[in-house]
Amino acid sequence: MFEARLVEGSLLKKVMESIKDLLNEASWDCSGNGMCLQAMDSSHVALVSLMLKSDGFENYRCDRSISLGINLASMSKILKCASNDDIITIRAEDDADAITFMFESPKQDRVSDYEMKLMNLDTEHLGIPDTEYACVIKMPSGEFSRICRDLSVLGDSVIICCTKDGVRFSAKGDLGNGNIKLAQSANVDKEEEAVVVDMREAVTLTFSLRYLNFFTKAAPLSSQVSLSMSEDVPLMVEYKINDKEGDSKGYVRYYLAPKIED
């Protein structure tokens, strides 16, 4: 039997919003550690790897590791039936062919439950090599969303150039070209407003803005985003999910293959 009760139900709603436009279907791999999901988009250009840790749930029971094959569009529609302040409980029997979602209002005066058929998905698992990245940029997530949206008016690719002075985002197209330079923050009192560039060596890479704009759908999950880059390896965009005390409840990570000179 798998049962997980999330008091902050809005977290699961936001997680669904962060993946539903990129992926059609995926398996939630549930184990004692938590709920994980890893899947590539249909073109194999981007990969999502997310985790909701078991200790982020009010209670969490997983008798046996199970893999729940889900049509994400359907799950997203059902989660839209939950209010932002609802408590969400997910339940599935071990040999289940269905998953149930229960939404409870804070005053427990309104309880709804929805059952959804599961899918048989072959759980192809990708090995993501641990990488020592040449550059890791930490910045406000809203700032990154703004940059990706603004530069999309110029072209379909962004060149990200990271040096010790800071990071520059550039785009060009028929309309013209544009550059956005972010300086390394000096002493910022509020950490989540800082731009921090941890650079081992300078890196310049080109990525599709279409995919980056899918990734920024995760911005409501975290006030900060980190971009990890090395020459000729996929970009890793990570939104950490922390609770109010700052303890990690999980993460949403996106990987994006670069565009290179043909």
């Binding site: 250009v45 990708l126 993501i128 080109t206 990987y255 293959a257 565009k259 043909d262």
Partner: peptide
């Protein structure tokens, strides 16, 4: 022109 790579050349199925 720049060509979009896929992840298949970077990540491998377990």
């Amino acid at each position: 022109t720049k060509v979009q790579k896929t992840l298949d050349t970077f990540f491998f199925f377990d």
